[in-house]
Simulated assay, not measured.
Amino acid sequence: MAKTIVLTGAGGVLCSTMAKALSRQGHKIAVLDLREEAANSVAQEINSEGGEAIGVSANVLEKESLEKAKQVINNAFGEVDILVNGAGGNHPLGTTSNPFFAMEDLQNTTEGFKTFFDLDPKGIEFTFNLNFLGTLIPTQVFAVDMVGREGCSILNISSMNAFTPLTKIPAYSGAKAAISNFTQWLAVHFSKVGIRVNALAPGFFLTDQNRALLTNEDGSLTQRGQQIIDQTPMGRYGTPDDLISATHFLCADASAFVTGIVIPIDGGFAAYSGV
């Protein structure tokens, strides 16, 4: 049965791949992104392949912006059946320069060098807002359509950072932990009105946001990039297509009794002790 699916942050690599895959199952796709050009580009690609999609510009942190987007989607496709909260990201002001604090760091005067004590509350606030409020507010707006109807669900994007925080990125790790917790809370909260809520927890996927951190200009791995591969039993980064089967499962009626779970998709990263 065809459903109307809204994906936020769908102009990006991962969620655009999810949008295209869901379209191939016959669903109507609303591609939401802060960047209107990116949203329209993904929608046009879906339509050129015989799917049915619209691109809509929306800011996940502004309820009024999302309400306007919802009106456009309702007019085009009717009520929303599924929401994929894909918008998220990190901020350099919420990131330390080194994985471990050392005494000499207090005397380091290198421009841009940040210890834990130099973390900017504004960068941390940005990261928490984008990830947590950027999931909560779209859910407030679009889940209204789902109340009391069958086959409706919400899919959040958490991270393996939520289980075990990575070094250097406390704000992002904490924000994704909040997403996992919120997924469970929301699953219980909506359990009596027919809305399922689950999440994916991707491990390391190369995206536009982290490519410069994990790879050099010649395509070789940075030191941190090599650390990740060495800690990943399957020995590679995830590809966008690695998210598709779990997405299909959690969005389908086949998972009608599944709610409140977070599925790791990490190539065995979390299972490996390093020894």
Rank of each mutant, 00 (worst) to 15 (best):
L66H: 01
V84A: 01
P92K: 08
G112M: 06
D118C: 01
N85T: 07
L106A: 14
D120F: 02
N90A: 13
D81P: 00
E104V: 02
L106H: 13
K122H: 12
A69T: 04
G94L: 08
N75E: 11
G112D: 09
S65D: 03
A102C: 13
F100Y: 15
G94A: 11
A76C: 02
G123E: 09
P99F: 14
F113S: 02
Q107S: 13
F116T: 15
D81S: 08
A87T: 01
V80P: 03
F101W: 15
G78I: 00
L119S: 06
L93F: 08
V80T: 09
A102V: 14
A102L: 15
S97R: 10
E67C: 02
E111P: 11
E111M: 03
E67A: 08
L66I: 02
T96I: 05
E79S: 06
T115R: 13
A76Y: 02
A76G: 00
G78P: 00
F116V: 15
F77P: 05
N108P: 01
V80K: 00
A69K: 01
E64C: 04
A102N: 15
G88C: 00
G123T: 03
N90R: 11
D120W: 08
T96C: 10
A102Q: 13
T96L: 01
V80L: 04
D120V: 06
D105Y: 04
T110Y: 01
G123D: 07
L119N: 07
T115S: 14
H91L: 03
A87C: 07
S65E: 00
G89Y: 05
M103P: 14
L106F: 12
P92I: 05
F101H: 15
D81T: 05
G112H: 07
E64P: 03
G86T: 05
G112Q: 07
G86R: 05
T95G: 11
E111Q: 05
V84I: 11
D118Y: 01
F77V: 08
N90G: 13
H91K: 04
G86Y: 03
F101Y: 13
L93V: 12
N85A: 02
N75A: 12
G123N: 02
S65P: 01
T109G: 07
V72D: 02
I124N: 08
D105L: 06
E79I: 06
L119R: 06
F116R: 12
N74R: 10
Q71W: 00
I82W: 00
Q71I: 01
P121M: 10
G94K: 12
I73M: 00
F101C: 11
T96N: 06
I73C: 01
S65F: 03
P99R: 15
D120P: 03
A102R: 15
K114E: 10
I124K: 10
F116Q: 13
L83N: 01
G89E: 04
P99M: 15
F100D: 13
D81W: 09
E67G: 04
L119T: 04
N85R: 05
